[in-house]
Design a protein around this nucleic acid. Structure first.
Length: 870
RNA sequence: GGGAGCAUAGCUCAGUUGGUUUAGAGCAUCUGCCUUACAAGCAGAGGGUCCGCGGUUCGAGCCCGUGUGCUCCCA
């Protein structure tokens, strides 16, 4: 079969993925092998594959594929989470397009539309992962609102309520005025925002001079309950205990004192609006101030505001500033930048709001979860995230778990008309409880309208994907849990990682995973985060179509050290594509030999084979150790260089027979074996091209995907050293040819002056071929009419047909000599230092002495050469 | 305001309890090659005050202090 000029991934990718699926290689059931389990961080059902997913899932696939080849029973579980807020927003948008408003629908009607949406779009992202080559056990695909999963979430809520961990309470929450729901602190993104600081005059009762208050939120003055000053502030001491009037509405409010106020900020006088600011609320409680909520839930002003009722808060800010100015209440405005909270989902400014919500008390549940990480029962990679984790866990606040949404797990609380409630798994149980608790039989009950925070379901993920709670102690969960490695982004360390550890310890009495690998954030090549608004997120599927899945995986992995951000550059994908072609072309070369294999000719490549075998073993061991430390990027670089440099540039050139010459069968077979091993080493990173090569190299019955690694013997250093000497010698002599402009086809005569003649004799064949000599000789004397060069400790005399320019050889030698003299003197300085000799370890001193003698002998060789040049 | 991390070649990064060659790789650059696997390639080369300053040490890219710059997290 004629092989194409370049590697063409498009058809190959699809062919192998279907083949692997047909063979059920990714399917796992418990057996007597050791399991290696990863649960995928479930992407939102609303998601489409982006660079973050690509990085994250490529890493998981690398770990899983490698573990599979190492003989583990690997199980990688896919799934999606229902993403309350995001999905509800998508469904509302879909309804709007059809001319339906959410408010016109019943809960059940709305939910049936939501399921319709989920069935249609919810699996897209998982399909996209197949294109990346992810070896997931698709039969285990889980959704956080599957029947069993749903029931488990409800069960956990009831259980934690009964334990007193969950409670209902009125507190300040973050209100999303667009999604009309509470948000947890973690769902609020703080952004530097340019604002204005308005200096407002409040008239003081019984005084001619007003008090000036600085605020960024003039639209909330109608909710003011007090003005607060620092008790030590001399400017305001005469006002203590007096009253002021809120501008425009003229409400009378007290002037109070509290040390909370910063005297230096603004005017030192703070307006207190307990309903609309977290700190003001605390102050209000302390001083028993009135709470006046001047907003509706959608961010417009309420009746309580008296003016601007029904108008949006930001519209009011503009309008009221004008009115205040016209009426003489606005003294001045100044530019002011501070951090403002925005909703992670809807990007609107979050409104602090007093609200009755469900809370999860975190303190007790967090303590053991902190301990497992600090004591490294769960290991974090890179370990710097331990600090981040500890800081959050030690300052943890209660978790607001209710959301004013329909799409999600409905809170299992049941109310009667009097507002009394019970928490139970279903209405039947609730009625029984009502009877026992309140003595009311067959009460008319209504279930809570709200649903739970999405993270309240995904924190059960590592065991509930195996039905660990809905079907306790089943064979799967007992076998696969605890899982091995969690791969995730550091920005959900609190949202998800911490809470999974808590849930695992609470419900399984065991950690959910043994190690957590935190990936970096994918940024563009200018270092900016990828975002829709910047339009700097590449079209991932487009890239896969263009470069192939392997090149995409290569591109994203080659520059992504653990825990560091990666700057994504399409050039890295090109490098991946070029690497594919390199491999492809090496195959083409070997294929050319297929008809010319002969066992009759002498195997004159013994050294090349011996060397590459050992080099391969050396690198395999290096890769093992890197993989254990999650240095995936370095492991890939190492394999890349082994294939491109050692295998293609050196080994294949060394063994390559002359044009249309036969190849020794042993050399050929060994080469096929090496190529196979290389493909296996690379397979976890680039699964498609390697599987294709595996089958192209020779007829096979098995597949690379499930081939087990063979243990490599420890490498022999002597051979590796001779290999390096050979490479250095070839490079050095090529440099001479290059600089002397000796044409590649022109042969040279080479005379070597060395104390290690037998070593050179072992590699003479290769050397001769690589630098195109007509003759290699050994000498102890200068060779007349030659160009002299020094490589290592040995001297080489190059003789060409055309006399060559020896003018610049002196300069080259002198440069080398100067370097060595400088180096020698730095070594001698050390050795002449008495304190060094006294304090340094013997092996360090021995090493320095070796450096010294090496440098001295090299210097002598060069000096001799220079002396002869005159 | 509190805390964390980072700073090494033009770019992206290695540099493993301080000694391994007066610092390594990939990409980019330059020079020469369309050499029968590969020009998406081959062969070679150049390129660094390891952010500044101070300290510890016989010895510092690595440890300590300090300054500067960038990034992130929390309030």
């Amino acid at each position: 079969m004629e092989l194409s000029k370049n590697f063409e991934p498009q058809s190959i990718d699809h062919k192998w993925y279907s083949h692997w699926l047909n063979k059920a290689y990714f399917k796992s059931t418990p057996d007597d092998r050791t399991p290696y389990t990863i649960v995928m961080p479930p992407p939102n059902v609303t998601g489409v594959l982006h660079m973050g997913h690509c990085l994250n899932n490529t890493i998981q696939d690398i770990l899983i594929r490698r573990a599979r080849m190492m003989g583990y029973n690997t199980c990688w579980v896919p799934g999606t989470d229902h993403a309350s807020i995001a999905t509800e927003a998508k469904v509302v948008a879909m309804l709007r397009e059809r001319g339906i408003t959410k408010s016109s629908l019943s809960r059940d009607e709305f939910l049936s539309y939501a399921w319709e949406w989920k069935e249609k779009y919810g699996g897209i992202i998982l399909q996209q992962l197949k294109k990346l080559g992810c070896s997931l056990d698709w039969d285990r695909t889980t959704f956080t609102m599957d029947k069993d999963y749903y029931d488990s979430v409800i069960k956990v809520f009831v259980d934690l309520y009964q334990k007193g961990v969950i409670y209902r309470g009125k507190r300040m929450i973050n209100w999303d005025v667009k999604a009309l729901t509470a948000l947890s602190d973690e769902e609020v993104i703080r952004k530097e925002t340019k604002q204005k600081l308005y200096h407002l005059k409040y008239t003081v009762e019984g005084s001619d001079s007003p008090i000036i208050v600085a605020t960024v939120r003039p639209e909330t003055i109608m909710g003011d309950s007090a003005i607060c000053v620092h008790p030590e502030d001399e400017r305001y001491k005469h006002l203590h205990g007096k009253f002021a009037f809120v501008p425009l509405i003229n409400r009378r409010i007290p002037i109070i004192t509290d040390e909370y106020v910063t005297m230096e900020f603004g005017t030192g006088a703070l307006k207190v609006t307990p309903a609309h600011d977290v700190n003001d609320y605390a102050l209000g409680e302390k001083h028993q101030l009135e709470v006046i909520d001047v907003f509706n839930d959608n961010g417009t002003l309420s009746e309580a505001a008296q003016i601007y009722v029904g108008m949006d808060r930001f519209e009011v800010r503009k309008k009221i500033a004008v009115e205040l100015e016209e009426k003489g209440f606005l003294l001045k405005t100044e530019e002011y930048t501070s951090e403002v909270g925005y909703s992670e989902r809807t990007d609107v400014v979050v409104e602090p709001r007093l609200s009755l919500q469900w809370w999860l008390s975190m303190k007790d549940i967090a303590t053991p979860a902190l301990k497992t990480v600090m004591e490294e029962e769960i290991k974090f990679y890179p370990p710097k995230f331990k600090n981040v984790y500890r800081h959050w866990m030690e300052n943890i606040k209660d978790w607001c778990i209710s959301r004013q949404l329909w799409w999600g797990h409905r809170i299992p609380a049941w109310y009667d008309n009097e507002g009394r409630f019970v928490v139970a798994e279903n209405e039947f149980e609730a009625k029984k409880l009502f009877e026992s608790q309140y003595g009311i039989s067959n009460a008319s009950l209504k279930q809570d309208e709200d649903c739970l925070d999405t993270w309240f379901s995904s924190w059960l993920w590592p065991f509930e994907v195996f039905k660990g709670l809905s079907n306790p102690n089943n064979a799967d969960v007992n076998y696969y849990y605890p899982t091995n490695t969690l791969v995730t982004a550091p920005d959900i360390i609190f949202f998800w990682v911490a809470r999974m550890i808590m849930a695992g310890l609470e419900y399984k009495k065991e950690i959910p995973f043994k190690e957590v690998y935190f990936t970096g954030t994918v940024r563009d090549k200018l270092g900016r985060k990828m975002s829709k608004s910047l339009g700097n997120s590449p079209d991932l599927l487009g890239l896969i179509d263009q470069y192939g899945a392997d090149a995409t995986r290569f591109g994203i992995m080659i520059a992504s050290p653990a825990g560091n951000d990666i700057l994504f550059d399409e050039a890295a994908l090109e490098q991946g594509r070029n690497f594919n072609n390199k491999i492809w072309n090496a195959l083409k070369l070997i294929k050319m030999w297929e008809g010319r294999i002969s066992s009759d000719i002498v195997n004159d490549n013994l050294f090349a084979i011996k060397w590459f075998e050992i080099r391969l073993a050396e690198v395999s061991l290096e890769v093992d150790s890197m993989m254990q430390q999650f240095r995936l990027s370095e492991a890939l670089k190492t394999i890349y260089s082994l294939i491109w440099d050692d295998f293609c540039s050196w080994y294949l050139e060394w063994i390559k027979p002359g044009f249309e010459q036969p190849i020794n069968s042993e050399v050929y077979n060994k080469t096929i074996g090496f190529f196979t091993d290389l493909m296996q080493l690379l397979h976890p990173f680039m699964p498609f091209v390697t599987e294709e090569m595996y089958h192209q190299l020779t007829e096979r019955k098995d597949d690379l995907c499930t081939k087990l690694y063979e243990i490599k013997a420890a490498p022999d250093n002597t051979v590796l050293q001779i290999g390096s000497l050979l490479k250095d010698t070839i490079s050095g002599l090529r440099d001479v040819r290059n600089k002397q402009q000796v044409k590649p086809k022109e042969t040279i005569k080479l005379f070597i002056q060395t104390e290690n003649q037998s070593t050179y004799q072992e590699i003479e064949n290769i050397l001769s071929k690589q630098v195109n000599t007509s003759e290699i000789g050994y000498t102890q004397e200068t060779v007349a009419g030659s160009f002299t060069t020094v490589i290592g400790k040995d001297k080489f005399y190059v003789v060409t047909e055309q006399p060559i320019d020896t003018g610049n050889q002196k300069a080259g030698l002198e440069k080398e000599l100067n370097h060595l003299i400088g180096f020698l003197s730095s070594v001698e300085k050390k050795l002449n230092n008495e304190k060094f000799v006294q304090n340094a370890k013997p092996e360090v001193i021995a090493l320095e002495q070796k450096k010294k003698s090496d440098a001295e002998s090299k210097i002598k060789v060069i000096e001799d050469a220079l002396a002869l040049l005159g």
